[in-house]
């Protein structure tokens, strides 16, 4: 079957049997070996890629579901050889053996796209589908928080004119920009454990 999709921003036409795993299509047909396999049962998250912007386990996705889709893998995170803030943040202990890192980065990237200032608990939940045996998750959570901070700072620096006051405030007290606060509040999903209410 011929599958048309965008992989890391590039349009591709891939000839592949339809039920082959997206993971194998990426690794074997397209030779994008950054995406890893740790279990083949959806548990470890090492194979996480973004499918239309959402993190999915590529070991559980048939190639035919990539038809017309946009896919981002770890290879697509850096732009023109420059590491993304998230990748940069992972250089300082977030990646030990590194086998979980590509999947972890993709899950974290998805989180940061929807929440510019995630709290620790939110980060931990967003990464709960990515097993890491090396780090105890401490430096990973730190890296995600750091990347969020760097990204916010960069965004603030880009719009100095209107938001000057806010940027100044950020410097002084390490507070977030108001605009970002709003983004942080706009949580896409109910957080778990909220008591079911009387309807």
């Amino acid at each position: 079957m011929k599958i048309r999709c965008r992989v890391n921003g590039v349009s591709r036409e891939v000839e592949t049997p339809p039920m082959v795993r997206l993971l194998d299509m990426l690794r074997e047909t397209l030779r994008l070996t950054g995406t890893k396999e740790g279990c083949g049962e959806g548990e470890c998250g090492a194979c996480t890629v973004l499918l239309n912007g959402q993190p999915v386990n590529s070991c559980l996705v048939p190639a035919c579901h990539a038809e017309g889709a946009s896919i981002v893998t770890v290879e697509g995170l850096s732009k023109r050889g420059k590491l993304s803030p998230l990748q940069e943040a992972f250089l300082h202990g977030g990646a030990q053996c590194g086998i979980c890192t590509p999947g972890m980065l993709m899950a974290a990237q998805a989180l940061l796209q929807e929440n510019g200032a995630p709290k620790e608990a939110v980060i931990r939940e967003a990464l709960a589908g990515n097993l890491c045996r090396c780090t105890g998750y401490v430096k990973i959570v730190e890296a995600v928080r750091e990347a969020a901070k760097v990204t916010r700072a960069a965004a603030a620096a880009k719009k100095p004119a209107r938001k000057k006051k806010a940027a100044g405030k950020e410097k002084a007290g390490g507070k977030q920009k108001p605009a970002m606060k709003k983004a942080a509040r706009k949580k896409p999903a109910t957080s778990r454990g909220k008591r079911a209410r009387r309807a």
């Binding site: 994008l32 995406t35 770890v74 290879e75 590491l83 590194g98």
Partner: peptide, 8 residues
């Protein structure tokens, strides 16, 4: 070794 690991 991290740079190669974060880029795949």
């Amino acid at each position: 070794d991290a740079a190669a690991k974060v880029t795949g």
